[in-house]
Design a protein around this nucleic acid. Structure first.
Length: 257
DNA sequence: ATGGCTTAGGTGCTAAGA
């Protein structure tokens, strides 16, 4: 069972990239973020043609999440319970007995921004939701763009990034609180990779990609039962070098079931 | 190098991203 995440920064622009990547990587589930499409514009037919069911929660211009799957998805939840929020940032569904949740966590903008408060609030509500989901689903994966680099080595330049947005202690604590619900960061299950400078996002500005000025902010978090059978977790960094790329690349985790 | 780019909406620019 292979599950991947990809922040596309517009599914409209990146549909050809998505179809080409899925043809080369015929994985079981792909979680998408920043589709930036209303539901009536979601390209479900083109994805069905490629062999994927889709469930989605979108809005105009901003945000938007989806789950593409070889097998149909059931028990879909597309908002955080008990949280008034017009922003479409989460969708959960069950595929082949696995609970999969696609999240586009808020960016936060800056430490003194109202968006930063919203980000931390959003994480708190997400933790409560995951606690509840984990109580009902032993096999669970929550994956997406978390907009948090968990450790100094998850940035290209810790001297520059430590303490700033995406790397501040409250944001890292908020991510850790998700792990404390009973989840593991699949990337960290393979410590031999430490120090290799593999990231999942590179800024469009300032030539981020050519000098590998990236961050690791897209994650695959797995429940204990799934983490125990996780055999790989890789970022497909080559996608960042394609023509008209997203600023994020796919991250793929494999589970031996 | 905190943006020098890229997106959507809409048609000249703004908002937002991370």
């Amino acid at each position: 069972m292979q599950i991947a995440t990809w922040n596309l920064n517009s599914l409209n622009v990146r549909l050809p990239h998505t179809l080409a990547w899925l043809e080369k990587n015929p994985i079981d589930v792909l979680a998408l973020q920043e589709t930036k499409l209303t539901d009536e514009r979601f390209p479900a037919a083109a994805l069905a043609e490629a062999g994927y069911h889709s469930v989605f929660a979108g809005q105009k211009t901003y945000n938007g999440v989806a789950l593409l799957s070889r097998e149909p998805a059931s028990d879909v939840i597309s908002a955080l319970p008990n949280f008034v929020d017009e922003q479409k940032r989460i969708i959960a569904a069950t595929v082949a007995g696995i609970r999969v949740i696609s999240v586009y966590c808020p960016n936060g903008a800056a430490l003194d921004s109202p968006k930063y408060t919203y980000k931390l609030d959003w994480f708190r509500v997400l933790a409560a939701f995951l606690q509840d989901e984990l109580s009902r689903h032993e096999r669970l994966v929550v994956t997406g763009d978390f907009n948090v680099a968990p450790r100094p080595e998850d940035t290209y330049d810790p001297d520059k990034w430590e303490g700033r947005i995406l790397c501040s202690p409250p944001e890292r604590a908020a991510l850790q609180a998700l792990l404390d619900c009973g989840l593991q960061d699949c990337w960290r299950l393979f410590p031999e990779r430490e120090g290799r400078r593999r990231f999942t996002w590179w800024d469009y500005r300032g030539g981020g990609w050519p000098r590998n000025a990236g961050l690791r902010i897209d994650h695959v978090l797995a429940s204990t039962a799934l983490a125990a059978v996780c055999s790989s977790c890789e970022a497909h960094v080559g996608e960042r070098g394609r023509k008209r790329p997203s600023d994020h690349v796919p991250v793929v985790a494999e589970f031996e079931l």
